[in-house]
Design a protein around this nucleic acid. Sequence first.
RNA 1: GCGAAAGUGGCGGAAUUGGCAGACGCGCUGGACUUAGGAUCCAGUGGGGCAACCCAUGGGGGUUCAAAUCCCCCCUUUCGCACCA
Length: 836
Amino acid sequence: MTMTDHKPPAGAQPLEPRIPDPSAKWQKRWNDMALFKAPEFPQGRKYFVMPMLPYPSGDIHMGHFRNYSMTDAIARKRMMEGYDVLHPLGWDAFGLPAEQAAISRNLHPEEWTLGNIAQSKATLQKVGISFDWSREVASCLPDYYKWTQWMFLQLYKHGLAYRKESEVNWCGTCNTVLANEQAAGGVCWRCGNAVGRKTLTQWFFKITEYAARLLDDIDHLDNWPDNVRTLQRNWIGRSTGAEVEFRLPDGTKIPVFTTRPDTIYGVTFMAIAPDAPLLASLAIPDARRAAVDAFVTRTRGKLAVERMADEEKEGVDTGIVVINPVSGEQVPLWVASYVLSGYGTGCLMGVPAHDQRDFEFARKYGLPIRQVIRSANEATSESGMTVATEDYGTMINSGPFNDQVGQAGVDAVIAHLEKNCIGRAQIQYRLRDWLVSRQRYWGAPIPMIHCDGCGIVPVPESDLPVLLPKGHIDFLPKGRSPLADIPEYINVKCPKCNRPAQRDPDTMDTFLCSSWYFLRYIDPKNDQAPFDKKKAAAWLPIDYYMGGVEHATGHLIYFRFFTKFLKDIGWLTVDEPARILFNHGMVMDSTGQVMSKSKGNVVSPIDMMRLHGVDPTRVAMFFSSPGDKEVLWSETGVVGAERFIHRVDQFVRSAKAAIGGKFDPDARFDTAKLSAAERDIYRKLHQTILKVDRDFEVMQLNTHLSAVMELSGALGSGENLRPELRAVCAATMVKLLAPLTPHMSEEWWEILGFGPTIFRAKWPSVDEAALPTDSVTIAVQFNGKVRGQLTVPADADEKAVVAAVQSDAKLAAHLAGKSVVKTIHVPGRLLNIVVK
RNA sequence: GCGAAAGUGGCGGAAUUGGCAGACGCGCUGGACUUAGGAUCCAGUGGGGCAACCCAUGGGGGUUCAAAUCCCCCCUUUCGCACCA
C-alpha cells in the first residue's frame, strides 16, 4: 500500500486555483475560537450528528470527503439555527489489514494504524470538516478498548455472552472465524473468498434474545430509509408456527419446527442436517452406518458456497424410523443436505405435497407424496404433481382435522399439540447468535480466564484493560490466535482461586468496538466509566446518523442491540440509538466503478483542492447528484462550480461597494414600497430560502444549489436594486451557501462587514409577506394539450380565466366552431378546456 | 429462484407527488471583449416540420379532462437474500 501521491496529472503546469482559496485562513480562525467544540452538556437545543466510524485504511478518499462534507453541512446549518452541535469523528482502528501490513512489511499493527490515522486526520483538517477533534477516539487504544472489554463483561454478567462448540464460518484466507453477518452469501466480507466450516468453541452474544424487540421496534424508526428497515426485517426473519415433538420408538424426542402444523398428516419422511448435533447421538443401524458416515463426511467437507451452489438436494436414509405424534404413523429419517443445522432444531418434517424443497427431495428418492391440503383451484393427483402446493386451504386426509380451513387448521393442530404435550406454538428467527471471538492479534482481548478448577472466570473490572502484549510477535496465521503462543500473556493466576490459569487467547470482533463508540464521543476522557449517564441522557439519541447501506444488517443491528442492552441495565434512557439514518451514495469513478484501493482508481480530494480550492470541490460534488445517490466523479463538473462561486463573489463585492457601510443583513422590506423589479427579486429571495430549507433537510444539495444559482441568475449585477436590498440579497445568499461553501461564505461575510464567524449568525427565515404575487402565468390546454400561456391575476377564478381565453385571439381560435364540454381550472397552474 | 429499488436530452440530473417534461449545471453552437484564452459576458441548444402542428420520460396496454408520476403485462439495470422448514 502506498500513501496517496499528491502530484498533479502528468504534463500539467502547477496551477493556481481560479478563485483564491481562503480555507487555511478560516480553518485557523475556527480552531482559535474553538468553534466546533461541543459543550459537556448541551445548554439549549442539541444536535448530535455523526458519520459512521471509518476504518483508517490509508488516507481519506473522495467517498469519505463526500460523506463528511454532508455531515459537515448539517452541523454547520444547525449551528446557524442555534443548536448546540456535537459532530465527532473517531477510528475503527482494530482489524485485519493492520495485521496483514505487519506481516508484509514488518511494521507493528499499531504503528501502521496510528500512521494512517494521523494522515487521514491531517487531510480532514485541511478540508475544513467541522469535527470536534477533542472528542476523537481510536478503538485500538487501551483507554478505549478497556471499555469495550467492560461491555463484554456486562453482557457476560447478564447471561448474554456464552461459549459453545459449533460449526462456524471459517475464512481460510483471513485465518479467523466470522459472524453470520460477515459470511453472508458464503463469502468473507473482508477478503471476498469462499468461507469454509470448522468446529470450534467460541464466544457468542445472545442477540437472538433481542430478536423480537429488534424486529418490532423497526416500526418506530420512522426516519430510517425503508430499504434498511426491510433489509433488517428480512435478516431477523420471524416465522410463526409450532414445535412438534416427533419420537423414536424408544421414546427419544426429535423436535422439529414447522410453520405449517396444518400439514402434519402429510409428513412422509423426516430430514436432519448432516451437521446437526442430534445426529451424532442417534443409534444408526449397522447396515446403514457406513453410508450415513460417508455422506456426512462428504457434505461437511464442502465449502458453504459449494453447498449452496448444489442444485440437487442429496440425502441418505438412516434406517431409523420416527413416529408422527399426531397421526401415529411411522416415517423414515433421512440425512439431507438441504437441512440447515443452525435453524430451528436442525431437523424437519418432510411434507412433499406442500413444500417445494421436500417435494424435490421426495421425487429424487422416491419417497411417498400425500396431499393433505386442498386449495381452491388445484385438483391434481399426487402422481401428477409437478410442484408442491404451498397455499393454505382445506385440510383433507387429516383424521379429526378434516375440513378445517387455513389458519383455523393451523390453530386447531397447535391446540391439539399443546393439550397432549407433544408440541407448542413457537416463533423462530432467522437471526443467529453473534459469534464474537476472532483468532487474530489486532483486536480487543477477550477479558476471560480459563481455570482448571473454577472454569470460566471473568477478569475483574478493576483489572481492565487486559492489554495486548507488545514486543516481538509472530503474526503469521496458524489457525489459532497469535496470543495463544505468548506464554507471558496467556498464563495468569485465576482471580478466584489464585492458581495457574490461562487467558482466553482470542480477540473480539471489531464490530463490538463500533457498537458503542457513539457513547464514548459523549464522554471521551472518562476514566471511571465508559461514559457519564447524565451526559448520555442529555445528548442521545443521535439526531442524524450518516453511513452506507452496506451496514444495514451488520453494524446497524449490533448497534441497536447494544443500545437496548445498555438501556436494560440502566445505562441509557433511549432504546434506539439514532433518530434519523441517512444512507449516502457511493462515489464511483467516471466509468461507474466503486473507488477502492484495490482497484487503484481512488481520486484524492487533496489533488482536487489544490487545483480548484476546497469549496468549489464541495460544490461540484454536492451539485452532481442528491445525497443518497451515487456520484460518478468527473472533474468537468468543477468548472461550473467555479463559475458560480465567481459570480457570487462578484455580486457580494459590488453589493458591498454600493452600500458602503453597515447594514442589517436580516432586514425586511415593505413590498408596497418596492419597485416592481425589486418586489420580484425580494420574492425570489424568500422563495429561495423556502426551497433551500426544504431541499437541505432531505440532503438534496444539488437542488439546494440550483435554487441559489437561479437566485444569482435573477439578481444579475443587482444594479437595478436599491443598495439596502442588494446588500441583504448578498448577505442572505452567502448564508444560504454557508453550509456548502463554509470558507467562501466566511470570506464573503467578512467582506460584507460582519464577524467573527457566519456560523454564529442567524439562519435566514422566510418573510411570508414577500411571497404572494399579484399575477400568475398559467398554461391553457385544449383537450389536455398545451396551446398557450396566459398571465392572469393571482386570485382569478375559473370564470375570469375563461373570459381571458376568449379575449385572446390566438387561444380563442381553438374554440371556433366547437362546443365546450367542460373546463378544469387549477388555480395558478392551468386551465384545461375540453371541446368537441 | 425470491425480495427491493430504478430506467427522463450528448452527460449529471429537475419536476411543489396527477397539472406547461427537461429546472440548474456540464458539454456543444454562434456572437461580444481580447496580444492571448482552460478567462469573462450575451444568445441558442430534446427530435421532426417553412408553418399551424406532430412525436418524445425503457416497451406495450389501461384509468383520467390531464400520467415521467397511478394500475396491469413485458424488457433492462443495480442492490439485497440465497434451500430459514
